[in-house]
Design a protein around this nucleic acid. Structure first.
Lengths: 249, 249
DNA sequence: TAAAACTGCGTATGGTTTACGCAAAAGCGT
DNA sequence: ACGCTTTTGCGTAAACCATACGCAGTTTTA
């Protein structure tokens, strides 16, 4: 029989790619995946990711919680589909220099995450598989086209930059949340003071060298752009060095 | 009145640093933070992080769920304390070369995460504040001591490497989970096939260049060490370039 | 000896995801 | 035109979850 056992994509993912015909039978659907994902994103934008429950999304749609499960197989799947919506289309590149292209890609990616901070709180359950996520992946690889990097290395480089973007935005979001909440996130606002109380220059000399320069006492939040820049520059400089090592311009 | 309003650390954190005297009054405690955290880690090791509920941890201790709240103010706090336990002490450095030191630090850090995969699933709620986490932070800064980097840049560099370690381990854990589960994580095992089905060389030229070289068809899991190496080398090469730019050896 | 303080924990509340099955609606084959 | 089949919406309910509140009992201290 040779059962091929070809693995199938979740049907909602296939639907996101536009490869599912509505079979027509049965009552006219009043709901569809797009409306559900739209509503979920609306809730996340207004009230944060924690507010996104099947119940809350159903209320937003004026429908019943269980009705959603006809179109989405689980909440995780809904979350995955949500991350595809705000991405829209990646930017077109104008520069001939791969550094400029990768830099533009990173900043644009960060901008999207900053506009929709809940996106970085959605756990990554695997490689990009929805249309816009794949489009951004493609754009990242395109930025590195024509360089001396092997294909696998390009993928690694894009992943590295992507990870940097995510973690930077997440850190920023934590800081901003610290200003309001009295939770453990509050620790962040007084991090320098806490470290000074818990450690000494003998226990933690390197840490106290940083403390002495006031690294953790930043009141101005403008430093975050610089922090992002530092990581981005480091990665790009590293890629540059790797390329130069095997192929001089 | 000048109410100082000095923010206080969570009492369990102060306890982790050994700065809380048991006040003595009241019945002899049968539970303490250490036993609770131990039990929680035991559950996470055996059954994964999702199995760690107050109920499950209490069962492990032969106690009642609400008894835990006398020693731990919330589940989030318990999770934070959990991440401190497996770290133990960071490695001592032997090399004079900061590259070697940073590399050793990164590999050792990754080893811990790989031995306790649930650790990377605990969301980072802020900068390191528990003893062992701070000790690792200190060690990372120590690796960069004596270099031309500013103190703030050292912190950024350690954060960059730390993020790379975390994301690498998380990706590996996802892959390993894909072999068993039939969830959406299954996508990972057939990622190349799915991309070939959903995209064309016209839509996604850069992606198909990678596909043609079989980048996503890796059956051997040994490639993961190489992927980690690539990112680590890139970061280190980047830091090297930044140092060289302002201070030649 | 009495008061104070502290532990363990029972009860209960309000949330979560989602399995299961049923009634109604709509198109298809005859 | 009529029944069959498919599909939708959704009601019910089960099995979880974190944790607020308050009470009973135990131990130290005054």
């Amino acid at each position: 029989m040779a059962d091929e056992q070809r693995p199938e994509l979740p049907s909602s993912v296939e639907l996101a790619w536009g490869r599912r015909a509505s079979s027509g039978r049965g009552p006219r659907p009043t709901l569809n995946v797009e409306r559900i994902v739209d509503a979920a994103v609306r809730v996340a934008n207004k009230e944060g990711l924690d507010a996104v429950s099947m119940n809350r999304v159903a209320t937003e749609l004026g429908s019943s919680p269980m009705a959603l499960y006809r179109h989405v197989s689980s909440k995780d799947e809904l979350l995955m589909l949500m991350t595809d919506l705000p991405l829209e289309s990646p930017p077109r590149f104008t520069s001939d220099d791969w550094r400029e292209r990768l830099r533009a890609w990173a900043w644009a990616h960060r901008e999207v995450f900053q506009r929709y901070p809940w996106m970085v709180r959605v756990p990554i359950g695997g490689p990009p598989i929805t249309p816009n996520n794949v489009a951004w992946f493609e754009a990242g690889l395109e930025a590195l086209a024509g360089t001396a990097l092997a294909e696998g290395e390009k993928v690694g480089a894009v992943l590295l930059v992507s990870t940097h973007v995510r973690s930077d935005v997440q850190l920023n979001a934590d800081i901003r949340a610290a200003e309001a909440n009295t939770d453990r996130a509050m620790v962040l606002a007084n991090y320098g003071a806490f470290l000074r109380e818990l450690t000494t220059a003998d226990d933690h000399p390197a840490l106290h060298r940083a403390l002495q320069e006031g690294v953790f006492d930043d009141e101005d939040t403008d430093s975050t752009d610089e922090d992002f820049e530092f990581g981005l520059q480091t990665i790009i400089a590293g890629l540059e060095a790797l390329m130069r090592g095997r192929d001089d311009d």
